[in-house]
Each structure stands twice: as structure tokens, then as C-alpha cells.
Write a protein that binds this DNA or RNA. Structure first.
Length: 589
DNA sequence: TATGGCTGCCC
DNA sequence: ATTCTGC
DNA sequence: GCAGAATGGGCAGCCATA
């Protein structure tokens, strides 16, 4: 099958926006795909070359791809990068370069085969060791040299993991159902199949070879990760309870790494992250905890791995558990950063799929399946029916060092919805509630060119706090979330008078924005918390010698502080105080 | 051998 | 992770 | 309300290069 067929389908998809039309066009592509290539084309439509949990990393992304484009088109990497900045899309930039008369010796571009595209990308993924970057570059450049401009465009978007077609896995499932399962009716079955095996190619192959019945026959199986259930967000206790039918189980939301632990029939224990990465090697202590404390001979359970001082009963911040995400020096790291596993779900036990059971029964089964120990624990949970009690529970959770609560439905609808972000689980976090959150009024000192749908406007801004002692503005975060299209459209005009050809004298930042601005425009920024930062210079040295402050999950609140001048902005001293107060009293007032 | 850029993956 | 937008 | 696509900080690993 020619890759051009796929690329042209992509081109059509990109121009559509109605979901029905997208599904229709995708179905047409799948319908003309030979059965043996169907799994591959499904992966390609997901922006993958293998199932997520296969662990295939290209080790190549935009920067290397830019060099490959430069090499193929006989331009410089700087020129390609400039075009990327202008168009907001490497695929488009390459397509333009390949189409220009200077580089196109007409007719020489025979085009690619789907098979060779995938084979070559796998070869790129496999390349490692000295000289591997050059090899990856060569391989991609080789493909590009024979690709038509449209093929090059989507090949590059595939490599940069940014297909931008307006379709995701749910739409591919829709299309698959339409083509091979006799219409929309099959969608639910396919969805379920995908959610429990996490392999769209396998679902497609199963469907084609054995029909819908075969897909229905796919089973949850220890050793094969299940797509995790996700939570909605809400800021108000009353609303949450209303959504959950007046009653919920409020569980502490720990700030760590979510893991899905599998014990297979042979007794091995494997840990997967929420994005299906295998991380058993990084947490041998967690594997041991489960080996000792997990009853069922086969099981799938979920919990949060949290840096945890068991002796003090103290939950440690997120950053500490991240130090455990390493490949080398694990033994030392295990000693340096002790962790606990706080369990909250049991999906499978002793041959039985529990995902259809309502939450209370799963929780009971979880409790029965575990022999708890100081580091192997259950999440703190409470049945709640009163908004005031929910608020109090929330406050306690934050005081105890948690992010907040996950409020879970206890009703008949409370099965484990693999892969779904439904309303059976609702998150309540401190920063969702403006009155409890720390906002800062920060000064825009720079901006970055937008990508994709933000091409042509700024995609993010560089923000600084005011160091009143030095009369300098020190960078504290970038921010691109929270801006509406209208906000973004308005930004260039607001900032134009402040634009500077170089970093302004009163700005202290290590980042290199595409455009600098004299401090003048102030915006309100909300964040989950302040963190120590090796990259941002706000309050540098005030808390720790070699660190400044940055923001976790920054977003624009929508409030332009036109009433404030730059030196009325939040000061670095105030940020330092906020940081220190947050550490002493997690409840924050 | 040390450093820095890039990548991938946690949140 | 959070947030916005088109359907 | 779903699905998709914008965007954040920061760490470790790997490779290229000074």
C-alpha cells in the first residue's frame, strides 16, 4: 500500500472538522486498507508505529527532524527552524521547502510504501550508541528524499508526535466499527476491547479475523496493562455530591506516580505507569511490598507510589518520588528516597475480572486482597453525604500532604471505566478553588511563537516577578494555558509597544523567548504550587543557594491587570513567603 | 572527561 | 498536568 | 459533554562535542 494513500487521507481529515465527516473519511481509508496492513494503518492513525506499551521510542523528535529536513532540502537547520516558527508546523515547513521549484527535480519523488515507512521508523527507534543520531538522521532523510511533499508533511508530524488531524483513538474506533463491525453498534465492543488490551492493532486484527464476537472475547489479563480510569474536575463540594447522587467515597489524592501492578500466573509482579510504561525495575521495593502483601495469585491493582517517610508518617513532595524514576543506581535511590504504595483499586483477582463490579465491592475486595504494612497501605477514604463534611475531609487531606480528593461514585454505575474520564470519579484540588489558591500578578517579559492552531500568534509568554530590592524582573514561569483565542489575538497589539530587540536590561531570565518585552503588561496567573527551580531565577538563592522558584501547572486566569504597573507585580519576596508558608501549613488558610 | 542539547515521560 | 473550542 | 489540541515544570538517560 502506498503511503500516499494514507497521507492524502490525512490531508482530507485535516481540512474537516465535523466528527461525522471525519469518521466517514477515516472509514474510507480503512476500507481501502488491505487486511494485513490494517493494524499498521491503525497505529499510524494514532500517531504510533506500535502499541503504546511496546516501548518503541524513536529517540528522535523535532530538533533532529529539522536537521533531516535541512539535509534533504539542501537548506540549513536555522532556515528550517525559522520556517517552523513562521508556519507553526514542521510538516508544513518541509512540504513548502520540498514543493519550491529550487528543490524539486520534478518526478523524481516516487513516493513511499506504508511498509517501508514503518520499517524505517522502527530502524530509527532501534538505532543506539555512538553515531546513532547521525544514523537516525540519515534514515529519516532517506525517506524524505523519496517522499512526495504531502507524504513528507505527515511523516514529519508522525516523527514529532503531532499529527494534528482532529482524530484520536475514539474516532479510529468509530471508523473501524463502521467498516468492519457493521456500523456504530459495534463501537462499544471495540472500545471495551481496546481499553482492556491497549493495542488498537490487535483489536483491528481480531475484528477482521474473528468478527465482533472475537473482540468481545478479549479478556482482561494480568501482564497486559489496562487503560486507566480518569477523573473529571470540579471545584465545589456541593456540585460534586450532586453529580454523584448525593453520596460519594472521598479518597485522598496522593501526589506521586500512579501505578498499575500486575501479578501474573507465574508469580511475577510488573508495574506499569498510567501511560503503560513498564517501571518495575525502578521500584524493586514496591515489587517486594506487593510480593509480600498481595494475596491473590493473579491480580491487577492500582495505587499511587509516593515518597513517604513511614516512621514519621509523612508524605513527601512529588519531586522526591521522581528521583526514583531512574535506570542506574537504583539501590542507592531506594535508600535515599523511600516510598510507599497507597492502593485504591483492584481490577482483577484470581481469575476474575472485577472491573464491572460497583466501587464498594471492588474496594472491599481490595481490602481483602492485601495484608497491609507500614509502606503498603490503602488510600484514606471516607463515605460522605454532606458538602460541609466533604470540605472538611478535603482540608484534612491537604493538611496531611495530599493534593486533594478523588470523589468516587458508590452507585450501581460505579464500575471501573477503563480509559474513560467519566463523572464516576471527580477530582477536587486546592488550586481549582480560586479563593483557596495562590495567584500571582506577573509581568510578561517575553513570548514564544505558537504552533498548530496557534500559528501566527504567541503560543505562550515568559513571566517574571518583581525583585524590588534590585529593581529587576526575574523569570518564574512560562504560561500558555488559560488564554482564549481572543486573548491570544489581542496579545500582539498589547505587547507591540513594549517589544525589544534584545533582553531588556531589567529582565533576568535564562530562557530564550522568540520576542522580548520591556516589563509593562501584568497578568494574573494561577498555579498549583511553587516549586524550587534550577531554571528560573525568581527569588534565586533566597530559599536555597542554587535554586529559584517556578510554578507547577501555571495558567492565565483571564484577568488582565491593566490596573497594575510592572513594579506593582507580585514580588519575588512575596513568592518566597508563599513558598515557605505552603510548606509549613499545607492547608494554606 | 565534563558539559550541554535533546528526548521521553512523570505530573 | 490545565484549559479552550468545535461539534 | 466529548474529543482533540494547545500549553506548563522538571528529571534522567543518551549522545555529541568541547
Amino acid at each position: 500500500m502506498r503511503y500516499l494513500i494514507v497521507a492524502e487521507a490525512y490531508r482530507d481529515l485535516e481540512r474537516l472538522s465535523s466528527r461525522l465527516a471525519l469518521t466517514e473519511r477515516l472509514a474510507a481509508l480503512l476500507a481501502q486498507t488491505p487486511a494485513d496492513l490494517l493494524p499498521t494503518v491503525c497505529y499510524l492513525c494514532q500517531g504510533l508505529i506500535a502499541p503504546e506499551f511496546a516501548g518503541v521510542d524513536l529517540g528522535m523528535a523535532e530538533k533532529l527532524a529539522v536537521r533531516a529536513v535541512a539535509s534533504t532540502t539542501g537548506t540549513s537547520a536555522e532556515q528550517v527552524a525559522a520556517l517552523v516558527r513562521e508556519t507553526g508546523d514542521l510538516g508544513q515547513a518541509a512540504e513548502r521547502l520540498l514543493t519550491s521549484p529550487a528543490t524539486e527535480p520534478a518526478g523524481l519523488t516516487a513516493g513511499l510504501e506504508v511498509g517501508e515507512v514503518v520499517r524505517t521508523l522502527r530502524e530509527i527507534a532501534a538505532a543506539e550508541g555512538a553515531g546513532s543520531q547521525g544514523r537516525k538522521l540519515e534514515l529519516l532523510a532517506g525517506l524524505l528524499a523519496r517522499a512526495t511533499p504531502v507524504e513528507a508533511c505527515y511523516l514529519l508530524r508522525l516523527v514529532t508526535r503531532n499529527l494534528r488531524l482532529g482524530i484520536g483513538t475514539p474516532t479510529v474506533l468509530d471508523a473501524l466499527a463502521q467498516v468492519h463491525a457493521g456500523g456504530k453498534a459495534g463501537k462499544k465492543v471495540l472500545e471495551r476491547g481496546y481499553n482492556i488490551c491497549c493495542d488498537l492493532g490487535k483489536v483491528a486484527a481480531t475484528l477482521v479475523s474473528g468478527g465482533l464476537a472475537a473482540v468481545e472475547g478479549l479478556r482482561v489479563q494480568p501482564g497486559n496493562p489496562v487503560r486507566v480510569m480518569l477523573a473529571q474536575r470540579l471545584a465545589d463540594a456541593g456540585e460534586i455530591l450532586a453529580r454523584l447522587g448525593g453520596q460519594c467515597a472521598a479518597e485522598y489524592k496522593y501526589d506521586g506516580v500512579r501505578v498499575q501492578a500486575h501479578r501474573t500466573a507465574d508469580g511475577r509482579i510488573e508495574l506499569f505507569t498510567r501511560r503503560l510504561e513498564e517501571i518495575s525495575d525502578q521500584f524493586p521495593d514496591v515489587v517486594e511490598l506487593l510480593a509480600a502483601g498481595l494475596g491473590p495469585s493473579e491480580a491487577i491493582l492500582e495505587g499511587e507510589v509516593v515518597a513517604y517517610d513511614a516512621a514519621a508518617g509523612e508524605l513527601r513532595p512529588f519531586g522526591e518520588v521522581m528521583l526514583r524514576r531512574r535506570k542506574h543506581g537504583i539501590d542507592q535511590a531506594v535508600q535515599d528516597v523511600p516510598v510507599g504504595l497507597f492502593c485504591f483499586e483492584l481490577l482483577y483477582a484470581d481469575g476474575e475480572d472485577l472491573t464491572m463490579l460497583p466501587y464498594p465491592r471492588r474496594r472491599a475486595a481490595l481490602e481483602a486482597a492485601l495484608t497491609l504494612s507500614p509502606r503498603l497501605r490503602l488510600t484514606t477514604a471516607a463515605e460522605v453525604t454532606d458538602p460541609a463534611v466533604l470540605d472538611a475531609t478535603f482540608a484534612q487531606a491537604v493538611t496531611d500532604g495530599c493534593e486533594g480528593l478523588v470523589c468516587k461514585s458508590t452507585g450501581p454505575d460505579s464500575g471501573y471505566q477503563a480509559g474513560a474520564r467519566g463523572w464516576q470519579w471527580i477530582k477536587l484540588k486546592r488550586d481549582y478553588r480560586t479563593e483557596l489558591s495562590d495567584t500571582a500578578d506577573l509581568v510578561i517579559v517575553g513570548a514564544f511563537a505558537g504552533r498548530g492552531r496557534r500559528a501566527g500568534v504567541y503560543g505562550a509568554v515568559l513571566l517574571a516577578a518583581y525583585d524590588a530590592d534590585a529593581d529587576v524582573f526575574r523569570a518564574v514561569t512560562k504560561c500558555g494555558a488559560g488564554f482564549t483565542d481572543a486573548d491570544l489575538a489581542a496579545l500582539p497589539a498589547r505587547l507591540a509597544p513594549l517589544q525589544s530587540p534584545h533582553k531588556p536590561a531589567r529582565v533576568d531570565a535564562r530562557q530564550e523567548p522568540d520576542v522580548w518585552f520591556e516589563p509593562g503588561l501584568v497578568v494574573e496567573i494561577l498555579s498549583a504550587e511553587l516549586t524550587l527551580s534550577p531554571n528560573y531565577t525568581a527569588a534565586w538563592g533566597q530559599i536555597r543557594d542554587d535554586a529559584g522558584l517556578a510554578m507547577r501547572f501555571p495558567r492565565f486566569t483571564g484577568r488582565w491587570r491593566d490596573d497594575k504597573a510592572a513594579d506593582d507585580a507580585t514580588t519575588t519576596r512575596e513568592l518566597a513567603e508563599l513558598f515557605l508558608n505552603a510548606r509549613r501549613t499545607p492547608a494554606g488558610g
